[in-house]
Design a protein around this nucleic acid. Structure first.
Lengths: 335, 335
DNA sequence: CTGAAAGCGCTAACAC
DNA sequence: GTGTTAGCGCTTTCAG
């Protein structure tokens, strides 16, 4: 059942059917109703390929994240999908993992699908900060379609970034721990991503402002994994002393809680622990964790709004948006 | 840059270029290399729309789930995407929510995108069991494209289902609690979905087999939410007595843990609690929860394998696959 | 092994 | 208001 069939059955030309389908005003009410009736009767759906061929657009946005099973990414994709859907856009999803080559492959693949725009979710796409070349593929992509980054910053034409103010967040959590008398705060991180670097800077700044030394051994590199973190802490516990833990992911913070449990260290009395992203883990834990809400919903909403302005109204939009985080205080840092 | 440009630059016809692109063997090695070189040089990508128009397929599968922010769905989508990607398929993702009308809309929308097949993730798409009409839209969709259900059962041509054996899982957890001397086991659930019904039947069967009565007041309807469940339990705690909790979602089980904490009931000594889906919550909690691993990865893997058999080899495939669950025992039921 | 040409279903410019 | 027609870029017979 195609446009020709509908035209024949309605006794009009395909042009008229096309007009009806696209809601053109230049059709008489009568013919319009007639065509609509025939369409409904025959359960007609326009062929998106044919349409796409002509318009070179399919109202589709490509979303790439490293791993949708991660609750942060999942939340982001949930927001993006639902709000894009309300604007009539579909989402093609790609989970690229963290490898440089895979990321590039995914970007190229989605680009070849003639997506209207590309969204990259997660700090990992912003490179490790050492090498500008790491992000060349994004600039390359941006020549073909606008690129939107969620929580990553990459410079270049046609690239738009929305980031949480991770610097400020870790600055404040650290300061708050210091205010409560913590002197050796462990900073737990797992990558050199853009946001990872911001978080570390915030931590360092707060220490510096308080006149505390920045100790290399308190920068604790681990994985975003409960068990791994717990075991690593246990392993280092003979030599490493700390009375506060600033985790850059909730799972690491939970690892610290589990560690404390094994060592019979009371949280938060003897050890303050704060998490990040305010995930379900933070409230599943006992005690419940203070955690940074990185305002992902705001980031995503802003991104989609900007995207629509750009795509449909050709408006100028901000290149870099920064959204403040909210520190959700539970018992583990304040007591 | 289209096929004509490449043809011209290579000094061949578009047919030859097309053959090269599609890996046809009827091209001389020499021309093939020539064309390949020109393609690479000009960074040529075939237009998917034009190709789709002719072939009426875009190697794309539609995935619908109620909410990708839910960790169970997210995990499923992660598995599906990665394994479909390895077969060269892309994923269009839709998050439909739980409303009947939204579900139908999403299905129709994806169908109109000429997806090669549709995957429905989650028990909610199997209806509430009362009304066959609820699932008519799925049978309707199946007339146009094969439909695969993850953890839901719907009868009909061209519909293929893969389910976890939830009945057996709750049967065994219940039995295990009974064996440990629990006499009043609270069954917590939140919906009349297909899997919800299976779970309840397993619970009832285990009670019956042990010669215990099935008490209506121990079938506790709540929401898949920690705080809500905790508060509901507190509210009913004056009248409701129980020494075991069989939750059909991890969040409910965590709610029970939080409730026990408020009431100073020791877990698992005084109260056994088991969760479901073996999510990150189960191990974030203190104590860590026994939980049912519903083998989502196996479900998804099987589904994709079958899908490929059907789509690419036209093979007959099983209509209903049932995968046994694994009960991951932690301290909360065994002690 | 290669080329010419007929669609695939739709949109939009152009006539009437 | 409505119809005619020329593409959009590719695949696929059918000839050679």
């Amino acid at each position: 059942m195609n446009i020709y069939d509908i035209a024949k059955l309605s006794g009009v030309s395909i042009a008229t059917v096309s007009r009806v389908v696209n809601g053109s005003p230049r059709v008489s009410e009568k013919t319009k109703q007639k065509v609509l009736a025939v369409m409904k009767e025959n359960d007609y759906t326009p062929n998106v390929f044919a349409r796409g061929l002509g318009l070179d657009s399919m109202k589709t946005v490509g979303i790439i994240c490293p791993n949708i099973a991660d609750s942060y990414m999942a939340k982001a994709v949930a927001y993006l999908e639902s709000s894009l859907h309300s604007y009539g856009y579909d989402c093609i999803l790609g989970c690229s993992g963290f490898g440089q080559e895979e990321k590039q492959n995914y970007v190229n693949m989605l680009l070849s699908k003639r997506i209207d725009t590309l969204v990259l979710v997660g700090s990992t796409y912003a490179g490790n900060g050492k090498d500008e070349y790491d992000t060349d593929y994004i600039r390359e992509a941006a020549k073909k379609t606008p690129v939107f980054m969620i929580n990553g910053r990459v410079r270049g034409d046609n690239i738009y970034c929305a980031c949480a103010d991770d610097y400020q967040a870790t600055y404040e959590v650290t300061k708050s721990m210091i205010r409560r008398g913590r002197e050796r705060i462990l900073f737990m991180y797992d990558s050199d991503s853009f946001s990872g670097r911001q978080k570390m800077k915030g931590y360092e700044a707060a220490l510096a402002d308080a006149g505390y030394p920045i100790r290399g051994e308190l920068k604790f590199r681990t994985k975003n994994d409960i068990e791994y973190t717990k075991n690593l802490l246990l392993e280092y516990s003979r030599t490493l002393e700390f009375d506060g833990v600033l985790a850059t992911e909730d799972a690491m913070a939970i690892g610290a809680v589990k560690y404390a449990k094994v060592k019979a260290i009371s949280v938060p009395e003897e050890l303050s622990i704060s998490g990040y992203n305010d995930s379900i883990m933070a409230i599943s834990s006992e005690p419940e964790l203070t955690s940074v809400d990185s305002k992902l919903n705001v980031l995503c909403k802003t991104t989609v709004d900007h995207m629509i302005s750009l795509l449909e109204k050709q408006e100028e939009i901000e290149k870099n948006v920064v959204v403040p985080c909210e520190i959700v205080k539970r018992c583990t840092t304040d007591f």
